[in-house]
């Protein structure tokens, strides 16, 4: 692959890859490293993939593998069986809530979702991947992807609700200038 073609590949994928990495690594510095590492591996190994249509899946798979490889497993990580089942149905106020919250906060809330759900959720939202594409990228069965999307969305809705409640409890309402009265 020549420099121009490589630059085109980077331009097409580095932003969504960064968002995916940010949701996984939970900080911008590590996310940038993961993206650089992924393209570095492409430059050294991935050029064997001649079908550029498969490059996207390859890049996301590689980034996810690198994340899993570099991450320290700590005792707090839960197995899927330990995770609570999703219970939060989407309500009209959930949609309004997302509209009120800024993008960075939505990302921060997404980062609190259990890791097993976070990866498929991020690919679903950010890259508009189908469940089959997510299964291929994360190397998990299709049924697992569907289950994680269902539970993950519920967990995200609950987390967004908690985040807004927490933000609201810290902010005093600003008095309307017409309605404000001296007491």
């Amino acid at each position: 692959m020549n420099n121009e073609a490589f630059a085109q590949l980077v331009d097409a994928h580095y932003a969504p890859l960064y968002r995916f990495a940010l949701s996984l690594a939970r900080n911008g510095s590590d996310a940038g490293d993961l993206v650089q590492q992924t393209f570095f591996i492409w430059a050294t190994k991935g050029e064997g993939i001649r079908e550029l249509s498969k490059a996207k899946s390859w890049l996301f798979t590689t980034l996810y593998r690198e994340f899993l490889r570099g991450r320290r497993r700590d005792s707090r990580s839960s197995s899927l069986e330990d995770l609570p089942a999703g219970e939060k149905e989407p309500a009209a106020e959930d949609i309004d809530r997302v509209a009120r919250i800024d993008a960075a906060t939505v990302m921060e809330v997404l980062q609190t979702v259990d890791e097993a759900y976070r990866a498929p959720l991020t690919l679903f939202y950010i890259e508009d991947m189908s469940y089959q594409e997510i299964a291929e990228a994360l190397e998990v069965p299709i049924g697992t992807v569907m289950s994680r999307l269902s539970r993950g969305k519920s967990q995200l809705r609950m987390a967004l609700e908690r985040a807004e409640a927490a933000a609201g409890s810290k902010v005093l309402p600003f008095p309307n200038s017409k309605g404000a009265r001296a007491s």
Binding site: F6, Y18, W42, A99, T122
Partner: peptide, 30 residues
């Protein structure tokens, strides 16, 4: 409601921009 919520979340997350300089760093690394 589920689709509207998904669309709203996706629209927000896609606003996250990579840090300036990341693209140049990737190309330099290659």
């Amino acid at each position: 409601r589920s689709r509207a919520h998904d669309a709203a979340v996706a629209q927000k997350l896609r606003q996250i921009a990579p840090p300036s300089g990341l693209r140049e760093a990737i190309l330099a690394g290659a």
